[in-house]
Design a protein around this nucleic acid. Structure first.
Length: 983
RNA sequence: GCUCAAGUGGUGGAAUUGGUAGACACGUUGGAUUCAAAAUCCAAUGCUUUCGGGCGUGCGGGUUCGAUUCCCGCCUUGAGUACCA
């Protein structure tokens, strides 16, 4: 009986599905464990071998936890709203829902082949109305909430209204819009309904505001900061410009500090925590007000160095700062206007790329230093960003390199406030060692002490206060797209109105085209039935809009991250129609114990998901305030591209043709040269010319005037075997223009060149997991992906090594089953059998706990090699071995478990206990080192004392030979470890 | 520029607490089996050598009886971030 993996795998996949082996129960006496993968966007390209890497890892862990007696929740679903399906719809007219469903079916088929222990009964799709009903509901809850700084949490908007009614907003401490006008309780009660709504909108956690957004003209939509990479859109790399638009925003900034603090309790990689800390960008300092001379205006600045207040030599405003036009003197007006005009023409990207050029202009105006009362010139400069802090800085050239460069460039006098520091060459930015001088009451203090006293002084004088600033901006939540969640919002007199939960979901309407309208409205502007009837509470035809009972609905849709911010909770109770998940389910499953996915979501999904979780926690919908307790970020699997080297002939310069000479390049066929046939470009040319001459394609005169260039061409990796040899016939049939290609071989073979690149269709280096499953089986794929190297490390896919893992499974099979039936019996295990087994158990448990799955596979190989050599026939040893291999190679494990005589699935068999007693040794083979270098080994009893060991070692003939008459200075003996002789 | 991670044979990688560097595989070479091939099995395989040894974990120092591991300085690669006041 051979290892027939195709039949075995199909059999057990069918068994698991029919018996719902991995269906998790929401009530159990077992402890719970929630293992989750980042759900995929179902793209049209299907899965390549890189996608399952993380899924295999989480599956091994989930299966291991089942063996350890846990009730495991291990679900999967689809992040099925998104741009590619919509772009495809624009091109083809096919409804994105249709494309999405086709892609999902393909994903499911591929996933099923790998044998994951997933509970598919809980599948979620963010694009299904049953799911997005609750995404709309969360939006509604955010709309109906405000952030109370006093209680440091989100509260229902009603509590805010109560406060307004009683005493207005003066005493309310909230995270809200910057410019809220003060009103009393009496005033509030006298406001019209519209006025009240306008004010509330400034406090809601999701709010409409005219903000400067990142507009991508090609995609026709706005993008969030995390969707932009190097000034271009993350998807498709299209240019992005700044534009003012009225958009929904999420007040994530209210949670900035809690999002940083929360990181401390998470078992995440330090690098991803650091990425989030940097993205949130907390800086502690002070805000200081500088009065502008001869004006009622103040310039407010933010500084992290209040200690340097007496070093302020000038001030700089961002060109976009609203005060620029007001304070500029008549004399400077023209210059300043020209400068502002010039900078506005440069894109954000240009300004970012060009950091070295120093530019700016004097406004002619002066501010008054709040402490020294000295006159401080006010400049405009584009090194100050309008979008950070207050858009203005107090420039301290002696302590800040940019201020220093600016001052020197324009010859502005520099005040030095650092004791015994030379600032003729560069600014002194060392905050820890600085001693302040020339600073009145701050003289002789350290920077740290001076900061505290400066802030206290500002506060007592009323010219400033201690302040913490964050880089994190509120997140734009509107997208001008079709394929996303509609907002549960309609507009009455321009004011947004929330549709009540009981009328949700608001289904995505049908449109005849997926493009924006001619008037520039989002695609939903094309829907004919997109109005809200407040009497029937239904969506009705636009023609019925009367602005009394029937109103227009919101035309934007939600961004991709809306649905993915809370999906982990939906899995807990995915079919609930009354709540996003029941209280009992949420209470039982809590949050995700293990989250596996790519680190590229560090500043997007993972931050938003934490934000929504904290919000739902504040409003008592959840009892946890973090979604993912432990996270593992798997590395990317890269493709190994293959190249054929095309010869491109052209005439040498000076040998141009006239009517009399023929174009000999036309005579030359399409030629590819084997990678092994040349080492340099010169040799490449020579090889090709020799070939052309040998085959009499050209004559010697032609060869004189020809030059041959080398051009690498991507070859589909499926035409190349593991020895880098190209199947030339398959290559010729691949593309019509290669039909008549000729090949220059080396040793009768055509070898391709290799290069590691990102796996992608366009590079023809995609390896499909289905193909690996068909050829070697899912268990081989699973083991091989783990065997490739550390999980978190990026690594190239190279099929060359897969035979080693496949051979291991064959050897494993042969350990249990021979040509004449089973090989095991009820014989007592030998000491060696038990030693091998328990050594393996110990190592594998350690490996799984450390997510070091690559070393587990090696351990299995060693174990099987040893048991084979020992001719192990013990059924108990072989049964235990099967259980520890089962998480990694579940199909073969089920089959052999069955052959071992078990009628139940192996999936809940208990994991063998490690017994240290089997590993106790009586002797140790000591390495004997001389000056730290191992020279020979010596077996000695472990209970031998240091003195005895020394006696035996020193008397040993090899020791005497090594010492060659010298007397050792020292002999170091660590019992059970090493012997080192020095001298 | 700043932050983080990493650098080990021909290749992927191992060495979890400072204690035998290169586990386990791939590849290569030789052999067995076979009419032959596939498959399978066995052996060798860091470099170098005058066959005594010598050298070896990016480079240069240091601590130590002993360093891939700890410390200092530098180089290279990858990732994130960037006029953040």
């Amino acid at each position: 009986m051979n290892y027939d993996f195709n039949n075995i795998e199909a059999k057990w996949q069918k068994y698991w599905s029919e018996n719902q082996t991995f269906k998790a129960s929401n009530s159990s006496t077992k402890p719970k464990y929630y293992a989750l993968d980042m759900f995929p966007y179902p793209s049209g390209a299907g899965l390549h071998v890189g996608h399952p890497l993380g899924y295999i890892a989480s599956d091994i862990y989930a299966r291991y936890k089942r063996h350890q007696g846990f009730n495991v929740l291990h679900p999967q679903g689809y992040d099925s709203f998104g741009l590619p399906a919509e772009q495809y719809a624009i091109q083809t007219g096919q409804h994105p829902d249709l494309t999405t469903k086709t892609n999902i079916a393909r994903y499911r088929e591929q996933l099923d082949k790998i044998g994951f222990s997933l509970d598919w009964s809980r599948e979620v799709r963010t694009s299904s109305p049953e799911y997005y009903k609750w995404t709309q509901w969360i939006f509604g809850e955010l709309f109906n909430s405000w952030y109370n700084v006093e209680s440091d949490k989100a509260e229902a908007i009603d509590t805010l209204i109560e406060k307004f009614e009683v005493s207005g907003n003066a005493a309310v401490e909230a995270i809200c819009d910057e410019k809220v006008t003060l009103f009393s309780g009496t005033e509030w009660n006298a406001f019209s309904d519209k006025e009240k709504q306008q004010i509330l909108l400034q406090y809601r956690l999701t709010f409409l505001a005219e903000t400067e957004v990142n507009w991508c003209p090609f995609l026709g939509t706005v993008l969030a900061n995390d969707e932009i990479v190097n000034g271009l859109s993350e998807r498709g790399s299209h240019p992005v410009v700044r534009k003012k638009m009225t958009q929904w925003s999420m007040r994530i900034s209210a949670y900035a500090d809690r999002l940083i603090q929360g990181l401390n309790g998470l078992d995440w990689s330090e690098s991803i925590k650091e990425t989030q800390r940097n993205w949130i960008g907390k800086s502690v300092g002070a805000s200081v007000k500088f009065p502008v001379q001869d004006s009622k205006e103040f310039i407010e600045v933010f500084t992290t160095r209040p200690d340097t207040i007496f070093g302020v030599s000038f001030m700089t405003l961002a060109p976009e700062h609203p005060l620029v036009s007001e304070i500029t003197t008549d004399l400077q007006k023209e210059k300043v206007a020209a400068y502002v005009e010039a900078t506005s023409k440069r894109s954000e990207r240009e300004r970012m790329a060009d950091v070295k050029t120093i530019s700016g202009v004097f406004t002619g105006a002066y501010a008054e230093h709040p402490l020294s009362k000295k006159r401080v010139p006010i400049w405009v400069g584009d090194y100050v960003l309008a979008s950070y802090g207050t858009g203005a800085v107090m420039a301290v050239p002696c302590g800040d390199q940019r201020d220093f460069d600016f001052a020197n460039h324009f010859g502005i006098p520099i005040l030095n406030i650092f004791k015994d520091v030379d600032i003729s060459e560069e600014a002194y930015t060392d905050k820890t060692n600085a001693i302040i001088t020339n600073s009145d009451f701050l003289d002789d203090l350290s920077a740290k002490e001076a900061s505290v006293i400066a802030v206290k002084t500002f506060e007592s004088l009323g010219c400033g206060l201690g302040k913490t600033n964050y880089r994190l901006r509120d997140a734009v939540f509107s997208r001008q797209r079709y394929w996303g969640e509609p907002f549960p919002i309609y507009y009455v007199d321009g004011m947004p109105q929330l549709i009540d939960t009981k009328h949700l979901p608001i289904n995505l309407p049908e449109v005849e085209k997926y493009l924006p309208t001619e008037e520039g409205e989002p695609p939903l502007g094309r829907a004919t039935d997109w109005a809200w009837n407040t009497v029937t509470n239904t969506v009705v035809n636009n023609s019925e809009i009367n602005n009394t009972t029937i109103h227009p609905l919101e035309l934007n849709t939600m961004p991709g991250w809306a649905g993915s911010s809370w999906y982990l909770f939906r899995y807990m109770d995915s079919e609930n129609t009354e709540e996003f998940a029941s209280k009992e389910a949420l209470e039982y499953w809590q949050n995700v114990d293990l989250y596996v996915g790519g680190s590229e979501h560090g500043t997007g999904h993972l931050l938003y998901s934490r934000f929504w979780t904290k919000f739902l926690f504040d409003r008592n919908f959840l009892s946890v305030d973090e979604p993912f307790k432990k996270m593992i970020n798997q590395g990317m699997i890269l493709g190994t591209s293959a190249f054929a080297y095309k010869a491109i002939p052209f005439m040498k310069t000076g040998c141009s043709l006239d009517e009399n000479t023929e174009d000999i390049t036309k005579k030359i066929p399409l030629i590819f040269v084997s990678k092994t046939a040349f080492k340099s470009d010169d040799e490449f040319e020579k090889v090709v010319l020799d070939y052309l001459l040998d085959n009499k394609i050209i004559g010697h005169f032609d060869a004189e005037i020809l030059t041959i260039a080398k051009s690498p061409v991507h070859v589909d990796v499926s035409f190349v075997n593991s020895s880098d040899e190209l199947d030339t016939d398959a290559f010729k049939n691949w593309r019509a223009d290669f039909k008549d290609a000729q090949f220059i071989l080396q040793d009768g073979k055509y070898s391709v060149g290799r290069e590691v690149e990102k796996m992608s269709k366009s590079k023809f280096n995609v390896v499909n997991p289905d193909d690996i499953c068909n050829e070697y089986g899912a268990d081989t794929l699973r083991l091989y992906e783990m065997f490739l190297g550390p999980l978190e490390q990026a690594k190239p896919w190279n099929t060359a090594g897969i035979s080693g893992v496949h051979n291991f499974l064959k050897k494993l099979w042969k350990l249990y089953v021979g040509e004449n039936g089973v090989k095991f019996n009820d014989s007592e295990p030998t000491k060696d059998n038990l030693k091998t087994l328990h050594k393996t158990i110990k190592k594998v448990i350690e490996d799984i706990e450390n997510f070091s799955f690559n070393t587990s596979v090696s351990t299995f190989m060693i174990c099987v090699n040893e048991l084979t050599a020992q001719k192990c026939t013990s059924k108990s040893v072989l049964s235990d071995l099967m259980t520890i291999i089962a998480p990694y190679a579940p199909h073969i494990a089920e089959e052999l478990w069955n052959i071992l005589g078990n009628s139940q699935s192996i999936s809940t068999a208990s994991f063998p206990k490690f017994e240290a007693s089997h590993l106790v040794e009586s002797a140790k083979e000591y390495p004997v080192s001389f000056n730290g270098k191992m020279r020979f080994k010596l077996e000695l009893p472990l209970d031998m004392s240091k003195d005895e060991i020394e006696k035996v070692v020193m008397a040993h003939e090899k020791t005497i030979k090594q010492l060659d008459g010298r007397t050792p200075k020292k002999v170091i003996i660590v019992p059970g470890k090493i012997i080192n002789i020095v001298g």
